[in-house]
Design a protein around this nucleic acid. Sequence first.
DNA 1: GCATCACATAAGCACAGACTTATGAGTCGT
DNA 2: ACGACTCATAAGTCTGTGCTTATGTGATGC
Lengths: 104, 104
Amino acid sequence: MSDVDIFKVLADPTRRAVLERLASAEMTATELREGFAISQPAMSQHLAVLRGAGLISERREGRYVNYRVDATGMAPLHEWLARYRAFWPGRIDGLKDLLKEMDQ
Amino acid sequence: MSDVDIFKVLADPTRRAVLERLASAEMTATELREGFAISQPAMSQHLAVLRGAGLISERREGRYVNYRVDATGMAPLHEWLARYRAFWPGRIDGLKDLLKEMDQ
DNA sequence: GCATCACATAAGCACAGACTTATGAGTCGT
DNA sequence: ACGACTCATAAGTCTGTGCTTATGTGATGC
């Protein structure tokens, strides 16, 4: 469970697109599939991977399953990034302000 | 150049290990190779990928090439992460303080 | 000049992983 | 109870990519 490689999980563009869609609203697998040229099993497999990485959580509702973003799994990624903060050139520092805004 | 998928670049554990080693000190390709059970061309290829993603920069010194971390390429990753800040559960908020410490 | 070194590039192989179709397991409406 | 549905799992195929060996390019030292 915890030995999942978050980087490999996010390396797939489709999975990142799924996260982006879920960022706007909670959704079922079928709703998610709209807009993707992908089969139902493929989507199901991606959702399983995302769930295994703690990036989404599911809420069963009858025969539907509603998925939503669960950023718990992003913590390792954030910790990893923090390690390289010291190497950021000055011109990127504007991001810090951006982050502080988003903290509100 | 800019259409490199930073997630795919970082999906490889060897490349992340290379970055981690370079985080401690600037190093040549040969020095880097110590500790890795990997051929010289394989390391060279990894370094090319890292450089293409703007994650490292090189400084030629005679027949040696010194590599060092260049976190410029990590900006897209940071921006991507920021988008999901809103979904972080409360118990991860401690990381914010950590980040603020590291900002000094 | 020539051998040796540090590193890059070429070409081919082999495995991981994302896709497919087929099927299984639950849930709902009639 | 049965058919239609939502989603998950199984099994097989195929492409991408990380590895290898072989070779190329340029720098250094004798």
